Simulated scan of single mutants.
Amino acid sequence: MGLRTRPIGFGYFKTKFNDKVLQDEQDVGTCELLQDSKVRIIISQEPEKSNLLRLEEAPLIKRIELLFHMEHSSIPMSLEVDVSDTIGKLKERIQSIESIPVNRLVLSFLGNELNNRSTIHECGLHHQTHIEVSIRASPPAAASTASGSNAGSKKLKLLVLPRCGTKKIPVEVNASDNVGELRKQLPILQEKLRFSLPSNGYFFIHKQSVMDDKRSFRWHHVNQGDTIEIFNGWVTRGS
């Protein structure tokens, strides 16, 4: 019936009929309310303890669904979250799905950026709230370092082919490293990935050219994703 004690502008009220307090769970028939029945409305400044207990025991919504609009997608991403989760934790979940660094993620609601330390509840986010997700540009310092004096240490992800027809082995080297550094890595990778190296010596071939262990990968014009082949034997260079 919706007639139990509840706040109004100047206090709390409850309803009585035949000296009995009417409860929300009861309908008109149960209460025996007939045409022209008189119902008393009693107003008080404080709610009854029983009603306070009811309000305190009412279940709170703890999990809600939020909709995230990524700047590179027209379809929002839906996540079920706990209202006590922080914005920082939300970013970590998005990072695990989208593989975007957490420090570059920006979550905004109604045009305002959300603070990492604030909880979903504190930000006033409700069920199916729409949140804008944008990606912050890389720091200028990082960009200048990549194009500056440290550019020589650029990482190259390469593939090594131990023998024709075998599985290629992924390796990572610096562009400025000498090819001999790859020879040092291979025995370590051999133990982990269990592939065979020629026991009687070997040399490296890149794009059908023999590689000099004392020259850098950059000198040999090795690019990202290139394959380096291993051949049995030794290369003898004249003086």
Rank of each mutant, 00 (worst) to 15 (best):
K20F: 00
V210G: 00
S176L: 07
V210F: 07
V28L: 15
D226Y: 08
C31S: 04
L193T: 03
E25N: 11
D85S: 11
R104M: 14
M211W: 02
F10H: 12
S44H: 12
S108L: 04
D226W: 04
T145L: 15
A137N: 08
F13I: 00
D177G: 07
N174M: 04
E65P: 07
I87Y: 01
N51K: 13
E113D: 14
I169A: 00
S84Y: 06
K49W: 10
N200S: 15
G201T: 11
T227I: 10
Q208N: 15
P140H: 11
C123G: 06
R183M: 09
L22R: 03
V21L: 03
W219V: 04
I43W: 01
R117G: 03
P76N: 09
D19K: 15
N103C: 08
N178D: 08
E172I: 14
E181D: 03
H221L: 12
V28W: 11
R6V: 01
V235G: 09
G124I: 03
H121D: 15
R218P: 00
L34V: 14
R6T: 08
R104S: 13
M211H: 05
E122Q: 15
N178A: 10
F195W: 10
S73A: 03
D36G: 02
H221V: 01
S84W: 04
F13D: 02
K91M: 05
R93F: 04
Y202R: 12
E113S: 12
L53E: 13
K184D: 11
G238D: 06
I188M: 12
G233F: 07
I94L: 15
R218E: 12
C123R: 12
S149W: 13
L22A: 01
A142H: 06
L33I: 13
I94K: 05
A58Q: 10
F231K: 10
P47Q: 04
K62A: 04
F109M: 01
L197V: 11
G2P: 07
R54Q: 08
A146Q: 10
S176C: 13
P101A: 05
F203V: 00
G9N: 13
R237F: 08
E113P: 08
V106F: 00
E57H: 08
S99L: 06
G11H: 09
L161S: 10
W219D: 07
P139D: 08
F204I: 10
S149M: 14
K49C: 09
F231Q: 06
R183Q: 13
F203I: 00
E92M: 11
V106H: 01
V210Y: 01
C31W: 01
R40T: 11
D212Q: 09
I75K: 15
G9M: 12
G111V: 01
P162F: 04
E80S: 07
S108M: 10
T145C: 13
A143D: 07
L114E: 07
P170D: 07
Q224G: 02
G9E: 14
A141Q: 14
D213I: 09
K16F: 15
E71T: 04
N51F: 13
S144L: 14
